Computed example of a mutant assay.
Amino acid sequence: MEKKKKLLIVDDQVGIRILLLEVFSTEGYETFQAANGRTALDIVRTHSPDLVLLDMKIPGMDGLEILKQIKEINRDIKVIMMTAYGELDMIKEATDLGALMHFTKPFDIDEMRMAVNLQMGEGPASRFASGS
């Protein structure tokens, strides 16, 4: 039996965390959530998620700082940023730090689902790639 892929959702808004947890649990991922940077980094160290959905604006430690520390812990963890603002300078910096892409809130949940499935190597795109 294949190991479930792990997804960490980091957002200080509980509504967004619940929505994303429901969507991605249904997709078959093992999901974790954190409302702040410290909790997020604890989960990264303990569970080593395959992918992190990371909000840019989190009280205490901002998304860029969390992203830096995730990459220090494990460079292979994929990170997708979420932002409520058109913060292009921060988005560029996040990309430079290793974030794959970003979604602006409110995001289209189906687009987010497809992007995550693609990054996790699940879903239609990966099946074609393997030449099956």
Results as ranks from 00 to 15, higher is better:
residue 69 Q to H: 15
residue 77 I to E: 15
residue 104 T to F: 02
residue 32 F to S: 04
residue 47 H to V: 02
residue 130 S to I: 14
residue 40 A to I: 06
residue 65 E to Q: 04
residue 46 T to L: 08
residue 125 A to S: 09
residue 98 G to C: 05
residue 40 A to D: 08
residue 38 R to F: 15
residue 56 M to A: 07
residue 62 D to W: 07
residue 74 N to G: 04
residue 53 L to F: 09
residue 82 M to L: 06
residue 126 S to F: 03
residue 80 I to G: 05
residue 82 M to W: 09
residue 63 G to E: 02
residue 107 F to V: 15
residue 94 A to S: 14
residue 112 M to Q: 01
residue 71 K to L: 00
residue 89 D to A: 15
residue 79 V to I: 04
residue 113 R to V: 13
residue 117 N to S: 10
residue 101 M to E: 12
residue 76 D to C: 11
residue 67 L to I: 00
residue 105 K to A: 00
residue 44 V to R: 07
residue 38 R to A: 11
residue 80 I to H: 01
residue 38 R to K: 11
residue 72 E to V: 00
residue 116 V to D: 00
residue 74 N to L: 06
residue 93 E to Q: 10
residue 93 E to L: 01
residue 92 K to E: 11
residue 89 D to Q: 15
residue 35 A to L: 10
residue 114 M to V: 13
residue 33 Q to I: 03
residue 93 E to N: 09
residue 104 T to L: 05
residue 77 I to M: 14
residue 96 D to A: 14
residue 87 E to G: 12
residue 119 Q to H: 12
residue 109 I to G: 12
residue 124 P to I: 10
residue 46 T to K: 01
residue 46 T to F: 10
residue 87 E to R: 06
residue 108 D to Q: 03
residue 64 L to W: 05
residue 111 E to D: 14
residue 45 R to D: 04
residue 52 V to L: 11
residue 66 I to R: 07
residue 116 V to G: 02
residue 39 T to V: 05
residue 63 G to C: 06
residue 35 A to Y: 05
residue 107 F to P: 04
residue 39 T to H: 09
residue 129 A to C: 14
residue 123 G to F: 08
residue 107 F to E: 01
residue 99 A to Q: 02
residue 101 M to G: 15
residue 130 S to M: 14
residue 67 L to S: 03
residue 44 V to E: 09
residue 62 D to I: 11
residue 128 F to G: 12
residue 47 H to L: 09
residue 71 K to Y: 00
residue 53 L to D: 00
residue 131 G to V: 07
residue 125 A to V: 09
residue 131 G to N: 09
residue 37 G to M: 03
residue 38 R to D: 10
residue 121 G to W: 13
residue 93 E to H: 06
residue 40 A to F: 01
residue 90 M to G: 15
residue 120 M to H: 05
residue 46 T to D: 01
residue 100 L to N: 08
residue 34 A to W: 03
residue 104 T to C: 02
residue 129 A to V: 13
residue 81 M to E: 02
residue 64 L to M: 08
residue 57 K to Y: 10
residue 76 D to S: 08
residue 104 T to E: 10
residue 50 D to G: 04
